[in-house]
Design a protein around this nucleic acid. Sequence first.
DNA 1: TTAATTTTTTAGATTTGTCTAAACATTTAG
DNA 2: CTAAATGTTTAGACAAATCTAAAAAATTAA
Lengths: 227, 227
Amino acid sequence: MSKHLVRYTKMQSFTEENYLKIIYHLSQNNEGSVQTNAIAEKMQTRAASVTDMLRKLSEKELILYKKYQGAHLTPAGRQTAINVIRKHRLWEVFLVEKLNFKWDEVHDIAEELEHINSQELVERLDEFLAFPKNDPHGDPIPDKNGNFDFVPFIKLSKLKKDDRGLIMGVSEHSSAFLKHLEKLGLTLGKSLTISTINQFDGSVEITVEEKKISVTREIAKHILIRI
Amino acid sequence: MSKHLVRYTKMQSFTEENYLKIIYHLSQNNEGSVQTNAIAEKMQTRAASVTDMLRKLSEKELILYKKYQGAHLTPAGRQTAINVIRKHRLWEVFLVEKLNFKWDEVHDIAEELEHINSQELVERLDEFLAFPKNDPHGDPIPDKNGNFDFVPFIKLSKLKKDDRGLIMGVSEHSSAFLKHLEKLGLTLGKSLTISTINQFDGSVEITVEEKKISVTREIAKHILIRI
DNA sequence: TTAATTTTTTAGATTTGTCTAAACATTTAG
DNA sequence: CTAAATGTTTAGACAAATCTAAAAAATTAA
């Protein structure tokens, strides 16, 4: 009778998608080609495994790869990566807005959901969520054509004394980090002013809703501000 | 120092979950042990592959298996299977109720979503959907303890002339079948009466909302009725 | 500019889930 | 009750993604 099991004639496997996504993120941070070791660290695997996968992705023309020269995404590879990121961020919005998860609880679940394979599903989810522009951590959600609504952020650690700004995002998604911010009252949309910059250790004292809060340099580096 | 038995729920792979789910369904249809060939057909694979997997599932104590004797689920195996089925059916409700998919469009997407791994996600989804009792095809959704709200159905093909009943479900989820039913106006909740049973080919003529419809025996076998 | 260090690649194995071909076991029919 | 048909398992292989160990290339430092 009917075929109940979906035959995975999928373009990319979960693993391939994860490699492309990581190569995309790494090439955002530092322009240029992405190194084998950097990928290995993010993928929690060995450099040898990365080399094998780079060769495979290169054969599929999703990346440009020359031995010892690192990797670059091709347009097709970038397209795939952005689509995975789009799905990840839309699912995060769903989890927070509809299922009442906290912003520090959604990353791992979205890591799984981002690989669900249905263009129709993504577009309907986007519509159901009223076409959100940002995910719960402030990251922009690309539209269905892969275009980002780019807003320039500045790291809190780069601000000067008396600068004012709005918290627009974070560049670190671990539960521990996000819970810490929550405890300090440093959530998206909050307005802050730099009171003091400690020259000794780079920590900053900021004022948020009339309260003074001290933040280490390491944390300040991961808080994104729009002035 | 006390010896702590860490009881970690060993993650099953997608494939293992699909085998368990299929063994569960097959053992519902015909009581007793499930045959290798039957599993092979549903899994769209070869009997040899099934044998390998049965041995593996048996080692993990998810099934009872003796060579040439077929397979039975253990309580642990049944638990896993029912959990996958619960997720599948909840996601189907989500797709139809929230994302406006049609009942014939959701099966394949739910086949992927059912493997997403988060107990918290399932429970919150259940709550978000207001604890539905049945999926869009009428199948009962087990609660979080694995208990079904059992309602006895009769196949339309088993009804006698002049019997009346309500369409409560279908036992075939292919898009082609469901689209066909939709075209005939045979959707969940509709009331029908048997007008004629054709002795030659087993087809039945039924009356639904004052209209006479003829249905082949093959189709009638997959329509579930509550008298 | 050699030498030491770091990074990357190769070679060979392993695991998972699959396959074909052939052997073996069970069931059914004459 | 044997023989044929059906159903199941074994044996051996393969592709994907990973691993370790070791070789090779590139980079950095003395």
